[in-house]
Write a protein that binds this DNA or RNA. Structure first.
Length: 588
RNA sequence: GCCCCCGUGGUGAAACGGAUAUCACAACAGUCUUCGGAACUGUCGGUCCAGGUUCGAUUCCUGGCGGGGGCACCA
């Protein structure tokens, strides 16, 4: 990514190594970090050659070839511009390849070849791969990270469980995805502000309080009690008109805040819920900078909406205040009910302004379930009319559902899988192989987070509680295990001492894959897609395991080189797992 | 009814318009005189249907079929 300066490389121990090849100063005049910008560097070189030919604009891609035999980088540039220039693609590719080799130089590239309809494939030199490896080894936890701070503040809201209800696996999904996005963005040198927005007022709270009152509970002590009270209230709300009226009255009373005993019960219940949530956050490894509550966005949201009503953004209809989305091809949304209570939308309006007031940011990301896509579209349309700048810097990232093979989850039907319950079950499974409870927890979290992060954020996960949480192949523990074994080899080598120098003329697949880590991480952050990193790490772990099975490391040929490779792998896997929020156990 | 998303081997997923569609699970066959077998090697098997755009389509467009979500006082 342009904008990430690379001078930090010069301060590293490997600055001496750079002397071998010389630092590459590109047309933009900035120094490039050796590996972090490899893709960018190749892209610039292609752009330069194309500019010479009279074509501008980046209408081509630089990617990893489909097959490693093609090389380390591939571009479709010749194919893309052949038509514009009215030239034969192969012929154009030949010229591009020749000039690219010239521009990039022998020390960086061993050969540039044309293949297929006109792809240009670039293969890095042994020297270049070794240098990248040295960087991966030397940089440690900074390998793959942007070390120059970028002046950008990004607020990211995720998890969003509702007090008085239990935190279920949907919230878990939001948390896992949101936390990984936060880490990926931080890794780009930006400042991340983690926010959690919790619905502590509204009909669901009224239902829970009603349930508590009916059960005569004045001192709720567990999240489970609250969950049951909510289920009771929720059922009564639909089955009995009397109960419905009582609950509606409670809802309004909570907003008004006048009834002392009721508010006391509300406060106690809320505290119990929040404390239970906090335990789950600790296990998951999340720490929020800001907590927002619907109880604090309700009043301001109402005020903003009423203001918008005067300005003609909203209108009144059947006693409710609505936003007519139809004027923008969307649908109507109620912001204030005819009973005078704010809906989710009014509170969201209050939240949008409150967020900016408390923590100034350049960008705001909201992670929620995909079912809210429609609401956000209309909400953003309304926000755009109220505060265009604020709307412009806000993005909604929807995530899919964790769908049960046995049907849809429902709090009323009691087939909700709670976040804590799921973690507990998987920890129990992991304990069969791990006596150490902390290791079992790390493995379990690895399995759960991997399952959530492995696929594109928007799509659903079909979850079979019985069998879909794999601890083998294509799983979190697979990555953790590869890491543990690599660490184990390194400590075994430390004891033996003897070394053999040199390196094989053509790099191992593992080495060539390691080079791409910084680019993969940058792309995952740019596209808000942790799954790209998951796919890469899975492939990398497989390559490590193959390498490990085929090559003798300690006491073998090229031992020094292989140990550097092992350390580079450890750094890559550790940093990669950290970015996913997956724990890295020392043993398992 | 209208709007949005999704249809990839038996199952769950990947593929920023490119090359012989990638990976895991399952099934089957192998690897243990070895630095950790939660591993490695191999076999089997796939783009919902019909058109279109393109040198090139899993990807973009149109229509169908199938699944999911949303569509005013829930969040």
């Amino acid at each position: 990514m342009v904008g990430s300066a690379g001078l930090a490389c010069g301060t590293l121990r490997l600055s001496a190594l750079f002397g071998v090849l010389g630092l590459h100063l590109l047309s933009g005049g900035r120094l490039y970090c050796y590996t972090r910008d490899m893709e960018e560097r190749i892209r610039k070189a292609i752009e330069g050659v194309l500019a010479d030919m009279g074509v501008s604009g980046g209408i081509f891609v630089v990617e990893r070839p489909t097959d490693t035999v093609y090389g380390d980088y591939a571009t479709n540039a010749a194919l893309a511009v052949a038509k514009i220039l009215g030239r034969n693609p192969r012929e154009l590719a030949d010229e591009l390849a020749r000039r690219l080799l010239d521009v990039l130089g022998d020390s960086l590239v061993s050969h540039v070849a044309v293949a297929g309809p006109g792809f240009v494939n670039i293969t890095l030199s042994r020297e270049a791969v070794t240098l990248a490896l040295a960087e991966a080894d030397a940089k440690g936890t900074e390998w793959g990270r942007e070390t120059i701070p970028v002046a950008q503040r990004v607020m990211i809201e995720y998890t969003d469980p509702n007090p008085f209800k239990e935190m279920h696996i949907g919230h878990l999904m939001s948390n896992v995805i949101g936390e990984s996005l936060a880490r990926l963005i931080e890794n780009e040198g930006k400042t991340v502000i983690r926010a959690n927005y919790q619905g502590d007022v509204g009909p669901h709270v009224a239902k829970a309080l009603w349930g508590l009152q009916k059960a005569g509970i004045t001192e709720p002590a567990t999240a489970r009690e609250l969950g049951e009270a909510y289920a009771t209230g929720s059922r009564a709300y639909e089955e009995s008109l009397d109960a419905k009226a009582e609950i509606d009255a409670l809802n309004q009373a909570i907003y008004a805040g006048g009834m002392h005993e009721l508010m006391e019960l509300w406060r106690k219940g809320r505290d119990v819920s929040l404390a239970a949530f906090e335990q789950v956050y600790t296990v998951l490894g999340t720490h929020f900078d800001y907590y927002f509550f619907e109880s604090e966005t309700a009043a301001s949201g109402m005020r903003i909406v009423r203001d918008g009503l005067n300005r003609g953004v909203f209108e009144e209809s059947d006693g409710a205040v609505i936003y007519r989305g139809e004027k923008k091809g969307l649908h109507t949304l109620v912001f204030i009910t005819s009973k005078g209570t704010p809906t989710y939308e009014a509170k969201d309006m209050g939240l949008a302004f409150l967020k900016e007031e408390r923590a100034q940011f350049d960008r705001s990301i909201i992670v929620t379930a995909a079912e809210q896509i429609g609401h956000f579209k209309v909400f953003f349309a309304a926000l755009e009319e109220m505060a265009p700048m604020l709307a412009a810097k806000t993005t909604h990232v929807p995530h899919g559902f964790l769908r049960l093979t046995s049907g849809k989850m429902s709090s009323r039907e009691g087939n909700v899988i709670t976040a804590a319950g799921l973690i507990e079950d998987v920890v129990a499974k992991a304990s069969e192989k791990n006596a150490d409870p902390l290791v079992a927890e790390h493995v379990a979290l690895g399995a759960i987070k991997y399952m959530v992060l492995r696929q594109a954020p928007g799509s659903d996960i079909i979850f079979d509680p019985e069998k879909s949480l794999s601890l083998e192949g294509d799983s979190g523990p697979y990555l953790q295990y590869a890491l543990v074994r690599a660490k184990s080899v390194i400590s075994a080598a430390a004891e033996s001492g003897a070394t053999t120098a040199g390196a094989p003329a053509s790099p191992y697949l593992l080495e060539r894959s390691l080079v791409h880590f910084p680019d993969v991480v940058a792309r995952a952050a740019r596209e808000l897609a942790p799954n790209l990193l998951v796919t890469y790490l899975t492939e990398l772990a497989g390559e490590w395991n193959s390498f490990y099975a085929q090559e003798r490391i300690v006491g073998g040929e090229y031992e020094t080189h292989k140990l550097m490779l092992a350390r580079a792998f450890v750094n890559t896997m550790s940093n990669g797992l950290m970015l996913l929020g997956i724990p890295t156990p020392e043993r398992m």
